[in-house]
């Protein structure tokens, strides 16, 4: 299918929903708190024009990206250690599993006590949340390395450090990238959640604020913007993976 045709087909469902939604709203078959598409798009236009949408989204993205980067660096380092050293895996594995079972959002109250309000709170929440998928994928990638590849590394007499850089990391990189992509989705979720619940900034706060001040049109406009941003980030990362890891597919 050609790209324009594919785009039209993909737009069919949202368009249909908007039309039905608009019709029901105009017929007063829906509560006013659900607003309606025309009003929502007007609010979206206004927020785009006055720049507030960009400012809010920007705040959220910066916090999410910072937390994601910090969590990723820690998780990749720990994942390599846990993946390469069986004794370490046996020792810390169960404790990590236990911590992983805690829903990140449940930590907001504690994080609030430790960090107070502000970007620090949000960034640490995101870092904590993205740490888990990335460490799991990294450790899995490291453990999946072919023993023959390690034979080659030994025969060529690379130092342990060079083995990690030249053999272990690249071998695990395709799986690490999957962890990073899943982590990016989680980062956005946790950043917005933290903003809605605790941290008064970003698009999460915008959503919460507009809803409590009875501007559901703005709430929906922000949600729409959030969906587009999330979709774009994922598409970008998927495209990046395709480009970088073509070798990993047959």
């Amino acid at each position: 299918m050609r790209a324009p045709a594919a785009f039209l087909r993909a737009a069919l469902l949202p368009l249909a929903i908007f039309v039905v939604w608009e019709a029901f709203a105009r017929a007063h078959a829906l509560p006013d708190s659900l607003s309606r598409p025309t009003t929502i798009f007007a609010a979206l236009g206004a927020e785009l024009l006055d720049g507030s949408l960009f400012a809010m989204t920007g705040q959220t993205l910066v916090s999410a990206a910072a937390g994601w980067a910090i969590g990723a660096v820690l998780a990749i380092a720990c994942g390599i250690a846990v993946g390469t050293i069986p004794a370490l895996r046996a020792t810390v594995g169960p404790a990590l599993e236990l911590m992983r079972s805690v829903p990140p959002v449940a930590l907001i109250p504690i994080a609030l006590l430790v960090c107070g309000l502000g970007p620090k709170l949000e960034i640490s929440m995101v870092a904590f949340a993205v740490f888990w998928p990335i460490i799991i994928f990294t450790a899995a990638g490291v453990r999946a390395i072919d023993p023959r590849v390690l034979d080659v590394a030994r025969v060529l007499r690379f130092s342990p450090g060079a083995r990690i850089v030249r053999f272990v990391l690249p071998a695990a990189s395709a799986l690490i990238a999957v962890g990073l992509r899943i982590g990016a989705g989680i980062a956005l979720v946790v950043a917005v959640t933290t903003e809605i619940i605790a941290n008064p900034s970003g698009i999460g706060y915008g959503i919460a604020f507009s809803a409590t001040t009875l501007r559901p049109d703005q709430t929906f406009a922000d949600l729409l913007a959030l969906a587009v941003v999330g979709f774009a980030i994922n598409a970008l990362l998927v495209a990046g993976e395709r480009r970088l890891f073509g070798w990993a597919r047959a």
Partner: peptide, 20 residues
């Protein structure tokens, strides 16, 4: 341990080459 002057060619070339 492996010696610099000694090279090895393994049977399973598809595993011994780095796919990346």
């Amino acid at each position: 341990e492996p010696q610099r002057e000694v090279a090895v060619v393994f049977q399973d070339y598809n595993r011994a080459l780095l796919p990346w």
